[in-house]
Design a protein around this nucleic acid. Structure first.
Lengths: 246, 246
DNA sequence: CGGGTCATTGAGTCAGCTCAAGGCTCGTGG
DNA sequence: CCACGAGCCTTGAGCTGACTCAATGACCCG
């Protein structure tokens, strides 16, 4: 079975230490010495793989840990005052999530796997203790939270100022560059999320997302087959996001 | 002169220590012992008041400090890819800004005074050193960054899911409750920002902001005279932000 | 092969935009 | 002390990008 194969693969990786993880260069351990990486490694818990739709943590759940993605993809979701859902982020391998829970000691978001994923759990009190001893780690963690802030502000700008086309192209370019960072292709990749997730995240309806994708495909800027994206004209995509609306 | 009077008032407060500051209960020192507050106090620099339009820091400027507002009000502004401006936050007394600069070591936002304001500057390397020694301070600062994240995500949700009316009412309620926290009236206050700032922040045109304010006034839910707001029907405002669009 | 989920496409509507015309307020200079 | 200009805000009229509603297509899984 396909799923079993994926699971087995994840399981094979399951006990990889930070020092051996191919994502170490973009994940939490950046700028740590080998010795310090091992200290960090000792506090990290590596759970069983989560499957599509499983929650890494729930909204309202007590904040105990932050999480690093080793493989797969996760979305974070907030509940609105009206009882709808708002996706606040997509997280790919090497990225850290869960920092929303720190302010109130409860997670304001839920985190839901978009596909079978391997997750490293990092108990926060231990991370805090270790941070106080390792200035580089403290700095690194401050930086990660700051990065989360600047990314959220980028999304605010996108939602506030940009057209449907620009929002969708921005998301494509974001995924493309994050793939490149992980050593994958920046022009040929699979979207881990549904059209409906994309629409929710970008403040658009599913129909609008579909129409924009169709148009970009017809104009031969991208080739799209379900979730498989080929970027044919990167310059044109960049032009779209940097050109004022009218 | 009016401005001189304000300056003098700020100047009078100018050297107030954290331990004597009436905002200590909501500002950075929360949860610190008196002794530790004094340690924090020692690293804080209190500059001259800034005037309306002055920048506390510039976009691209090297990140050296975070800032606490003692009096007045400040907006933070990002440049978009198209060269426009996006306001990412409004900061009132007791609130901390500048955490956006940590990720890349340069501020991505500029911070601009909306009125004459007194600002406490907190050099970050010293704060970092002190955090490593005072677990409560480290935790407190992590929490402040996390709060910034959850607030940005609230704005994302607002922009993505809510109507013009709901966005504007949300801002009014936010300012109202932040005023209450500082011991001021939650139904009678002055908006520190212009209509154009409000529109920019909420992803609306200035005309729409004006029309919504006029409508709320005509319906007698609020009374509005320039920047002076009186909330007449708090329940109705709450109803507006929690009622699904249609 | 049937039912469910997800995606696409078309047709018509509407919230918020653009464009345009004034109004109010405050500071400056005659 | 008033006239004038600049900046900010309000209001009206008409337009449009993205929405809603609706129908259909494609795929997956049992």
């Amino acid at each position: 079975m396909k799923i079993d194969a994926v699971e087995r693969k994840c399981h094979a990786n399951h006990e990889v230490k930070c020092s051996d993880c191919r994502l170490a260069a973009i994940c939490l351990p950046i700028s740590l010495e080998l010795e310090d990486i091992n200290k960090l490694d000792n506090i990290i818990q590596r759970g069983r793989p989560v499957h599509k739709g499983d929650r890494v943590y729930h909204a309202g759940e007590e904040f105990k840990s932050v999480y690093a993605i080793r493989s797969g993809a996760v979305k974070t979701v907030r509940n609105t005052k009206e009882g709808e859902e708002q996706i606040t982020g997509f997280y790919l391998p090497g990225e850290i999530l869960g920092m929303d829970g720190l302010a109130t000691n409860n997670h304001t978001n839920a985190a839901i796997a978009l596909e079978t994923s391997a997750i490293c759990e990092i108990p926060f009190t231990r991370l805090e203790e270790l941070s106080a001893k390792l200035p580089n780690l403290q700095r690194r963690f401050f930086q990660l939270m700051s990065k989360e802030i600047t990314q959220d502000q980028e999304l605010i700008t996108l939602l506030s100022k940009n057209s449907a086309d620009q929002r969708i192209v921005s998301l494509l370019l974001s995924i493309s560059s994050r793939n490149a960072q992980r050593g994958l292709s920046n022009v040929d990749f699979f979207l881990p999320m549904s059209r409906s997730d994309i629409g929710n995240y970008l403040g658009l309806t599913i129909e609008t997302v579909s129409r924009v994708f169709s148009r970009l495909h017809k104009q031969n800027i991208i080739t799209l087959d379900k979730k498989h994206v080929l970027i044919n004209d990167m310059d044109e995509l960049r032009r779209i996001v940097t050109t004022p609306d009218r």
